[in-house]
Design a protein around this nucleic acid. Sequence first.
DNA 1: ACCTGAACACCGTTCAAGT
DNA 2: ACCTGAACACCGTTCAAGT
Lengths: 226, 226
Amino acid sequence: MAAKRGARSKQRTNDERLQPVQEPRSEPPLSRERIVVTAVDLLDAQGLDGLTMRRLADRLGSGVMSLYWYVDNKEDVFDLALDSVLEYRGSRQMAEFQDWREEIVHILEDWRASMLRHPWSASLLPRRALGPNILSRLEMLSETLSRAGVAAADMNVAIWSLWNYVMGATITRASFDLSDDDRAAAQQRLSERYPTIERSRLLLDDDWDGAFRKGLGFLLDGLSPR
Amino acid sequence: MAAKRGARSKQRTNDERLQPVQEPRSEPPLSRERIVVTAVDLLDAQGLDGLTMRRLADRLGSGVMSLYWYVDNKEDVFDLALDSVLEYRGSRQMAEFQDWREEIVHILEDWRASMLRHPWSASLLPRRALGPNILSRLEMLSETLSRAGVAAADMNVAIWSLWNYVMGATITRASFDLSDDDRAAAQQRLSERYPTIERSRLLLDDDWDGAFRKGLGFLLDGLSPR
DNA sequence: ACCTGAACACCGTTCAAGT
DNA sequence: ACCTGAACACCGTTCAAGT
């Protein structure tokens, strides 16, 4: 568990071959999958700037350049980590929902939750090509809107509007991690020059989930066919 | 013009004191303002990753460490560049507008346009503290919503919803700069696994401005008081 | 097929020093 | 008050080489 790296195969001398094949104390061989899993861990722990090829190799117990056998470059690592985090793990048949609105809310809240579990992912998503997992989320969304009766001519606008809303909300939420003191101080500084937002206590509001759901409700009101 | 740096004050020997004070061929003195202007130029030319302290100093004709007299660190440069780009340059009295809706659309389209003129700015904005210029845009927005009769209880949700929509739309627009060929190729790959978004030609749609305005319309429909 | 270390061309920032 | 170069502890990736 707290085994030192580098002391890997030393105390293998007094043989314990009674145990079956797996050797828990030596690193498993490098693989694309291990690299992705470890990259996600590292990103979760250190953020976007915290992922470096050297640190990643370190965690994997390999030399830096060994990674390049499995991966083209650092951008490739980002793409793989991002896609892995966006996998939809919920059930596929949506029979459980009363109406399309509830279904859309579920799809978008699940998407948002997946990104917030890995706060680096939201700001990464718009910069990279769309991977298979985000595309299948868009496909789900699109199917549901279609069943809901959104006109074909409005379809793309509807999808992009919801995309914009979710991305904006999630990127903002993920990067706005001021402490309560910081927010109070920021709010304080508003008083003279920004009276209106001061009055509504804009920067003190911290019911992110509620605001997300409520604002999404407004948008869906606008998007509702007829 | 193509004067070598470092050769700055050499050929000052044969005196030309007839000319007045300004010396067009030597760099003006370093200043916070010059640093910000040059940083924006550099960011426009090379993007977020293209701004390095060394390149910035190079463009300014100074040593790298000289910058640190005017600026705390690189993050400081980002904050200053970001705020400078978000300054509102339009007229302040909104008498010209027929109704609040038109006014909101104007405010948000102007904000979006400012960010798209400097595509690095949108993705930077959510990561940094809110500077004075973005705060005064929020203040304008807030005033207008107030005058429009949005209930105090809905005010923050309304502001954050519009914020989310604009940020999501702009970040996406600014980073999605695939060539037409790339988009066609991406669209092609959708065919089997993502039939619904394939059918609506989601990735081929390139009327960004129209989609922004139309989606904003839907959101404002939802937000309209009563 | 898989892994490696040395090397290159970069980074941001500290520090001690110059004028 | 303003500016500097050397140095430190990093980066991503190429290359030539090892097994």
